[in-house]
Design a binder for these strands. Structure first.
Length: 232
DNA sequence: CCCTGATTCGC
DNA sequence: GCGAATCAGG
């Protein structure tokens, strides 16, 4: 198996979504867990709470002595400038270790720091002949002030109501989980907002991506939407 | 034992 | 670049 665009993308999303390398591996198929990890590293997207990374303490003095037990396989004396591993020192509060199968929360860390609009600096603006605002040479291009002029639309918080999500309504942001059976008059799609990185909403991700039981005794019958294909 | 991710190193 | 082998912590 080669790393095609799709496979790399899936790997990336799942990896960032908190899936384990094993899950990703047999989700992709044809690759081993090691292959996934190796690829992930090569892609530059590691950095995830690893069980084998002992968090280093800030207090070096209290450390008794050299805990370094380098194995003889790599006895390189390395007369270099030291600091072979510039490990990040202060990053102990690792992000929430995502649950095994439900990477849903994806808190999307928003700094949302300063820049409070509550403190508008006095700016000098003048109105031009046509009514447009004249700007100083340094401040053309306002940050991003205007409120999104979106059009109000009757909220449709849950599927079913009013219009149903048809095949034509599908896009990358709405849940594609089928509701009903194809051919039925009321067949449609879920239409909820997707769980970022997945083709389904959070709820249906839970159905689509079942808990990965330990290898060996995995549930044979894969979950199908609503009992699966209708038998006629 | 199982799991995990990290790293190494021959290909 | 790839991934099996290996390491190492939980």
């Amino acid at each position: 198996m080669s790393w095609t665009e799709e496979r790399i993308e899936k790997l990336t999303k799942m990896w960032e979504g908190g899936s384990t390398a094993s899950q990703i591996a047999d989700e992709l198929g044809g690759v081993s867990r090691n292959a996934v990890i190796g690829k992930a590293h090569r892609l530059g997207l590691k950095a995830r709470p690893s069980p084998v990374k002992a968090n280093d303490k800030t207090d070096v003095s209290a450390s008794p002595a050299a805990p370094k037990v380098a194995k003889p396989a790599t006895p390189a004396p390395e007369p270099k400038v030291a600091a072979p591993r510039p490990v990040v020192a202060a990053a102990p509060p690792a992000p929430a270790p995502a649950p095994r199968v439900a990477p849903s929360p994806a808190p999307e860390a928003k700094p949302a720091s300063d820049a409070a609009p509550a403190a508008p600096q006095p700016r000098i603006v003048s109105v031009g002949p046509g009514g447009f605002l004249r700007q100083g040479p340094g401040d053309q291009q306002a940050p991003i002030p205007p409120a999104p002029p979106r059009r109000l639309v009757p909220a449709r918080p849950s599927p079913e109501i009013a219009d149903k999500t048809s095949l034509l309504d599908l896009n990358d942001r709405i849940c594609r989980w089928p509701m009903g059976h194809p051919g039925e008059p009321d067949f449609h799609f879920c239409g909820e907002k997707v769980n970022p990185g997945f083709p389904y909403c959070v709820e249906h991700c839970g159905r689509a991506y079942q808990a990965q039981l330990p290898r060996g005794h995995r549930r044979p019958p894969p979950p199908m939407p609503f009992g699966g294909p209708r038998v006629r």
